[in-house]
Amino acid sequence: MAIPKKALAFLKQTGELSSFTGRFFSEGFRPPYEFGEFIRQCYLIGNKSLPLVGTTAFIMGMVLTIQLRPALISYGVESELPFIVADAIIREIGPVITALIFAGKIGSGMGAELGSMKVTEQIDAMEVSGTNPFKFLVVTRVLAATLMLPLLVLLADSISIIGSFIGLNIKGVMSFRLFMDDIFQYLDFTDIFPPLIKTFFFGFSVGMVGCFKGYFSDKGTEGVGRSANSAVVVSSMLIFLIDLIAVQITDLLGFN
């Protein structure tokens, strides 16, 4: 039986992405290091996504609280609302929503930027200037995305909790101190660390896919557009897959 063309193309892409990732590990940790460019990318990636991540996190926290409140009142556990919302944010909503926003903002940006650099021969120009473009462009961006996303998630979690506090005080009354006490009475390290660890993988996959799509972009403006678009689609899909694997692991380890 012949393999359908689409399946073959998917397998080919998967193979190429795997060898691109392999190249990251084989070249990325060998000197000379592009430390200056790495710091610049950290600043650009972190700084560029902060307003968007902050706004969405604030809204998510507020909306979740307002929506959950009636259900918790009917069960008579309204006092548990701060912890339930905070736990949901820290374990799942914060990391996943932030990673998806990050994929939309940074992943597509990497796909488009590297794609247009490839089309306008800037990557070739870099190579003839005695620079390894893979190290300069790919390794720095992937590392920066891997390190910046967890920081953004920590910030987003905190902003979401503030949003939740404000959401709770729209209809009810609760002091900030009582609100925080309620959260930290139940919250422990197993609530915070496993979700934080998975965000490193989320960031890595967004960086890797964005750079891969841009680096192997087709010629022409259409090719660049396609790179940016598929960078977001593939990395969003990977975020959910990683999330699924992460929850199985934490479940096996008894952290859920």
Partner: peptide, 25 residues
């Protein structure tokens, strides 16, 4: 090598573009 599409780095100023090969080599 003078590229057909010039291959100037969009994200850098003219000075940074010119310094790039200098700093590398």
């Amino acid at each position: 090598f003078l590229f057909q599409s010039n291959a100037l780095y969009d994200s850098m100023t003219v000075r940074e573009n010119l310094e790039f090969p200098l700093r590398r080599h």
